[in-house]
Write a protein that binds this DNA or RNA. Structure first.
Lengths: 224, 224
DNA sequence: ACAAATTTTTAGATTTGCCTAAATTTATTT
DNA sequence: AAATAAATTTAGGCAAATCTAAAAATTTGT
């Protein structure tokens, strides 16, 4: 019966991290993994795990890792919904670039006002995906997982539309910008280099050579 | 040389409160006054006063009250700027009513991103006043104090335009809404009741009887 | 001016969220 | 199946922001 409105920022960040590490599938997430992801110490994670368990947000048994309860999952989705809607807002309404949005959205996602986020949703015309191609959960926590695959997994001659990125770090996103790679662009694999798995691709009109590292962080939706 | 970006939410709230209580004019504000305004205890205020003094944001001498330094004033204005711009955003872009904005703006004012607030400012077309008629400081901390007076101070037959409210509480604002009183409306004093200082006023086309309590919380700009 | 009232500060706790270092449990090797 | 390694928890502490209760300074009233 935990009121989601009284969660601290720190609690919300833990819930979000556990969700992202897969703790929603009742597959528990390791203390160490959470600590690493959050750049904190395992002992701090243990402390928080106990607190969140008391509040009914996670399942926690000593030495067995942490997974989200149903309420925990709902909470996580609500935070992620806010994060991604704010990202869309920043890009669409305030002309932020997609490498600038994350840091600010990390703050905005903790603003407590149901009306606020619903109105932002409406202002943006109920977007389904954020600027990195990740799906935005609806108010009731549902979202579509779009079928997509890594560009690095396509065969030669295959192609599709760029629909998302795996790495969302600023350097990577800036690289993409600089090379004209963006969501919605059409990509075709012209050639794969066996030696280092680098790719020769066609993007819109121009051609480009990209490393495996790049290709394995780009999602495409294959055409038929 | 305090970096404004590393202020805690609590520190920002103290600075803002001291500003509103008049501590910018080197007239010190009493510990108790701050405590009452912030619904906290005087001893907590003392603690914070010391901390803010260490950071160079306030002048503080034991038993002598607190006033803002120049840096403190700049900080206060920057927070107030954010608060008021967010209020305009909520009303103009998200259809919040003027009694709903304060609580959410209290949260949004603490978001740390210079680019964000500048873009919001731009999106709103650089507004000069917030939804309650209070001036919005510019980026460099300047703002116009509009000349205005309390409706309760006007003589009979005098009139003007409603430009602001003193009390910004939700009940008061809802009362105004219900009675068709809003910023920009033309008001004329038809009659003053000596007994209880209540007023008979004309607002746009209709007539209305309001108590002194109401009139003394409404600002008007007298017409020449 | 001096006693009483008020205001303000100090001292000592509490809570949250984090830390380090040591102990414990679980997992991996050989 | 020990022994070793790795992961996790416990214990004890720290800083921020608050509180209560008691002490100290200031202000007020007569």
């Amino acid at each position: 019966m935990t009121n989601l409105f009284l969660m601290t920022r720190s609690e919300e960040n833990y819930i979000k991290t556990i969700f992202h590490l897969g703790g929603s599938d009742s597959v528990p997430v390791a203390t160490n993994a959470i600590a690493e992801q959050m750049e904190t110490k395992p002992s701090s994670v243990t402390d928080m795990a106990k607190k969140l368990a008391d509040k009914g947000l996670v399942h926690y048994k000593k030495y067995q890792g942490v997974s989200l309860t149903e309420i925990g999952i709902k909470t996580a989705l609500s935070i992620i919904r806010k994060h991604r809607l704010w990202e869309v807002f920043l890009v669409k309404k305030l002309d932020f670039t997609w490498d600038e949005v994350h840091e600010v959205a990390e703050q905005l996602e903790h603003i407590k006002s149901e009306k606020l986020i619903d109105k932002i949703d409406e202002l943006l015309d109920f977007p389904k995906y954020d600027p990195h191609g990740d799906p935005i959960p609806s108010k009731d926590g549902k979202f579509m997982v779009r079928d997509k695959e890594l560009l690095s997994d396509l065969e030669v001659k295959a192609g599709g539309v760029c629909v998302g990125v795996k790495d969302t770090s600023a350097p990577f996103l800036k690289f993409l910008d600089k090379n004209g790679i963006a969501l919605g662009k059409t990509i075709e694999v012209l050639e794969k280099e066996d030696f280092d798995q680098s790719l020769h691709i066609k993007i819109d009109q121009s051609e480009l050579h990209i490393s495996h590292q790049i290709a394995s962080n780009l999602y495409v939706k294959k055409n038929n």
